[in-house]
């Protein structure tokens, strides 16, 4: 049997491999190579000399050192970390809470599920425009501004300043993703055998104890996935960042920072942008791999 499959291994996987090679691997490797050159987008420029040959424009680790010293890059890095930490925690809590509520009601669960999932259908750019309008006009003028219903300064002018747009992004992202994550938690909750709860009740466990000792551990696999998905998406967030503030007031997330690095100098420094992109990749790889390993280990323990 194995021989049969082995015969067909290459044909089956061949097309996927070629596609993958052309679209992802080769550009990635070339990108890494370019990050070591003085790439300016349409040409290479080293020692005041114009060249189209990348090999004669190699500058070693210069781009990487420049990237680390680049104040905007470091700011974007910190900003992204702050945003991701807050967003991941909030999304998880909201998704879990609503999953818990939805599994406890009998009628209408389907409708609510549909409603909560809908935000996930919209694309980043369109979403960003709508929420920009909401923050700037609805929040600031109608609801929470000085002439609004209740004046809450923290919710006014949320696209200005440095910290407020962070909250605005969190609100946006929670609105968009919580529904999707909630579905995953619901599936996880539904997979917990009810006899575990019954046994616990017979043993006299309170609701809280049941939650802590049965629900949470059994949700560990779902938690891993939700954590992984939200971590990766928040870290890489781009469209919504562009639509909401376009990076004004130092509100660039990493993805936007990389996109805009070429336009920060003239001639555009694509070499440094590429170096930043490689650092970005390494960061994401470290963060998500660590997360998966840690949560998998917890899963096994539970």
């Amino acid at each position: 049997m194995n021989i049969y499959y082995k015969k067909w291994f290459f044909p089956l996987i061949g097309l996927a491999f070629i596609l993958f090679l052309t679209v992802i691997l080769i550009p990635f490797v070339v990108g890494v190579f370019y990050s070591f050159t003085a790439w300016k987008g349409t040409f290479f420029f080293k020692n005041n000399a114009l060249t189209y040959n990348p090999f004669s424009a190699i500058v070693g680790f210069d781009n990487y050192i420049a990237a680390i010293n680049n104040e905007k890059f470091c700011n974007a890095f910190l900003y992204t970390i702050k945003f991701t930490v807050i967003a991941v925690i909030v999304i998880n809590i909201v998704a879990l809470v609503f999953a818990l509520i939805l599994t406890k009601i009998n009628q209408g669960a389907g409708i609510f599920r549909t409603v909560f999932f809908m935000p996930n259908l919209l694309g980043g750019l369109a979403l960003g425009f709508i929420w920009k309008f909401i923050f700037e006009i609805i929040f600031s003028k109608v609801f929470f501004g000085p002439d609004g219903l209740i004046a809450i300064d923290a919710l006014t002018n949320m696209t200005q300043g440095n910290f407020k747009p962070l909250l605005a992004l969190v609100i946006l992202v929670v609105w968009q993703m919580a529904g999707y994550m909630m579905l995953i938690y619901i599936t996880g909750l539904n997979n917990i055998p009810t006899d575990l709860y019954e046994a616990a009740k017979i043993d006299g466990a309170s609701n809280f104890q049941q939650f802590k000792h049965i629900t949470l551990p059994m949700l560990a696999p779902a938690f891993t996935i939700v954590f992984f998905l939200t971590l990766a998406s928040c870290f890489k967030l781009l469209d919504q960042n562009i639509a909401l503030t376009n990076g004004a007031f130092d509100t660039r997330l990493l993805a936007l920072q990389i996109l805009r690095t070429p336009s920060d100098t003239s001639p555009p420094n694509y070499g440094q942008a590429q170096a930043q992109a490689v650092i970005f990749f390494v960061l994401i790889a470290i963060v998500t791999l660590t997360q998966v390993i840690l949560t998998k280990r917890k899963e096994v323990e539970m």
Binding site: L21, L25, I26, V29, V30, F33, Y34, Y52, N53, P54, F55
Partner: peptide, 15 residues
Amino acid sequence: VIFIASLLFTGCDSS
């Protein structure tokens, strides 16, 4: 394999 393929690519650049 990938590295060689990429080198070929960068070699045959726009010019």
